[in-house]
Nucleic acid binder design. Structure first.
Lengths: 245, 245
DNA sequence: CCCTTTATAGTCAGAGTGACTATTAAGGGA
DNA sequence: TCCCTTAATAGTCACTCTGACTATAAAGGG
C-alpha cells in the first residue's frame, strides 16, 4: 500500500465488448471479423465490438455494436444467443488507455455476407482455422478468439447449441457436420444419429414427409431444434488419446 | 444514433472485482463474506472485493482484495485457484456510479476464521444455503453468489476441483462429502470410490500405511490430489428426474 | 463383548457407446 | 438405361460404465 493510498479512489476505465461470432460454411468454421477504420490498429482485422455506452449493459452494447459494424439484420441480432465468454483486463491490452473488455460468443447459421459500418471499414466471414485466422488480429483478439473456439467446442458436448449453427430446418447430416467442423474430428453417422435421436428434446422431426437433398445420396429427413437445452448424458468429443476414455 | 453522437467517446467506468470463496464446513457449504465498513450498504454483508487499481489485472486485484479484507495468509491467497465467473454490468447495480464488476470463484479447504481489514469491518464464513445466505447481501451479490454456486456444482462434474475443498491429505469419505454438500444429494460410497479410483490422476494414495479416523468406523486410507485436471468421463450429479438419464 | 458406524470388496443387470455390416434411395456418367 | 458412388438409415455385437445391493473388515461406544 503506497503512502497516501486512498482505498476509495478508483481509476476510470473504458469498458468495451468484443464478439466472437461463429458460423459453419461449407465444412469450415468461420468467424465474423471487421477491418478497423480507426487507430489503433487501423486497417487490421479485429473482432467486432466497441465501447459500452453510459446506460447500457455489456450485452446490450454487444448487440448494438454487432448490428452497427456488420449490418446484420436487427431482428436477427436481437434474437441471437449471446453468451458471455470472459473479461480481459490486462493493463496494457490497449495502447491508448486502460480498457477492460467483456467478450461474448455467438453461434449463427450460414448468413449473407455482412458489410462494414460504424467504426468498421469492412466486415467479413473469415476461416477461424485451428492455429488461428489467416490474418493477424488487433489487440489480444487472437487470444479471445482461441478462448471462444475452445468454449464452443466444449459447449457442444453438453448442450444442444449445435442447432444454432443450422438453418431452421436441417438434416442430421448437417448437424453432424457442425460437430465435425468445430471438433475437427469425424463422427460415425449412424452412431451420431442414434445418440441425437435418443436424447429427448434435442431435435424434433418435421412431420410432413419433408425431405431434402444437399446433393447426391439418399434424401434425408428434416429436423427442427427441440426444447431441450442440455445434453445429459453429454456427447463427448473423441479424445485425442492418453486422456481417460 | 443520436445527433452529435461521437463514436469514439467513452464513458468512464469504475471496475471492481467480487469474490465468491467457498468452503465445506461440517457438511455445509459456506461462503466468505465481509461486513461493509463504508457506504453504500455500510453494515451489510457482501462478497469480498473492491476497485481494480491502475496497473492491475482483475485477477491481481482479486487476490489483493481478498488478502486485505479477510486477512487470509498471503501465500495461501497467492496459490489459490481463482476462476473468472462472469462480469456484471447492469447500469444501476451500484447507486454511486457506473461500476462493472468482474466476479471470481475460489474453492478452499476449511480454514481458520478470517478477520476484517481494509474496507471490511468484519469477515466471516457464513452458510451459503440453497435459497441463499442467512443475511441479505449488498448490491447484486446474492445473484453473483447464486451463479457461483451453480458454477461450482457444474464444475465438480467434469473437473477434479473437488480436492480443492479438502486438506492436503484426505479420505475418500471426505471427498465424497464435498460432492454431497455442494450437490445436496447423497452418493453411494462404494460407487463413488470405484469411480474416483478408476479415474487416472484424480487422487493418489498416500504410500505409507497412513490412515486416519474422523471419529468412529473403520479407518480410511489417505489420498492426495493427483495431476489430472479434468474428469473424462464426467461424474454426473444425480439429476432431479425427468431429465434424460 | 455386542452394536453401530464407516470403509472397502465384489456382484449383477441395464444403459450407452464404438466399431461395423447391410440396405435404401438418389445422382452421375458411360 | 444400367452401373457406380454417395449418403441416409437400420441393425448387431462386444465392452465399459453405472446404479443398486450384499458382504466383510475394523474401529469406537456402551
Amino acid at each position: 500500500m503506497q503512502p497516501g493510498y486512498d482505498p476509495h479512489a478508483f481509476t476510470p476505465f473504458a469498458v468495451t465488448v468484443d464478439l466472437a461470432v461463429f458460423t459453419v460454411r461449407s465444412g469450415v468454421l468461420h468467424t465474423l471479423l471487421i477491418r478497423r477504420g480507426q487507430e489503433p490498429y487501423a486497417g487490421d482485422w479485429a473482432l467486432p465490438g466497441g465501447f459500452v455506452l453510459p446506460r447500457e449493459s455489456a450485452e446490450t452494447a454487444a448487440r448494438r455494436e454487432l448490428a452497427e459494424e456488420t449490418g446484420l439484420a436487427p431482428d436477427l441480432v436481437a434474437a441471437l444467443h449471446l453468451e458471455q465468454l470472459r473479461t480481459y483486463s490486462e493493463p496494457d491490452r490497449d495502447p491508448r488507455m486502460r480498457v477492460v473488455s467483456v467478450a461474448f460468443t455467438a453461434l449463427v447459421p450460414d448468413l449473407p455476407e455482412p458489410h462494414g459500418g460504424g467504426d468498421a471499414a469492412d466486415a467479413r466471414w473469415l476461416p477461424a482455422g485451428e492455429p488461428g485466422p489467416p490474418v493477424p488480429l488487433a489487440f489480444d483478439h487472437e487470444r479471445i478468439l482461441a478462448d471462444a473456439r475452445e468454449r464452443v467446442g466444449a459447449k457442444l458436448e453438453y448442450t444442444c447449441l449445435a442447432t444454432a449453427f443450422c438453418p431452421p430446418e436441417f438434416t442430421l447430416g448437417e448437424l453432424r457436420q457442425v460437430y465435425e467442423t468445430v471438433w475437427g474430428a469425424e463422427l460415425d453417422p449412424a452412431n451420431f444419429r442414434r445418440k441425437v435421436l435418443a436424447t429427448p428434446g434435442f431435435v424434433e422431426a418435421v412431420p410432413g414427409a419433408a425431405r431434402l437433398t444437399g446433393g447426391r445420396g439418399k434424401p434425408a429427413a428434416l429436423y427442427r431444434p427441440g426444447p431441450a437445452g442440455t445434453l445429459a448424458p453429454p456427447l463427448l468429443r473423441p479424445r485425442p488419446e492418453g486422456t481417460a476414455r
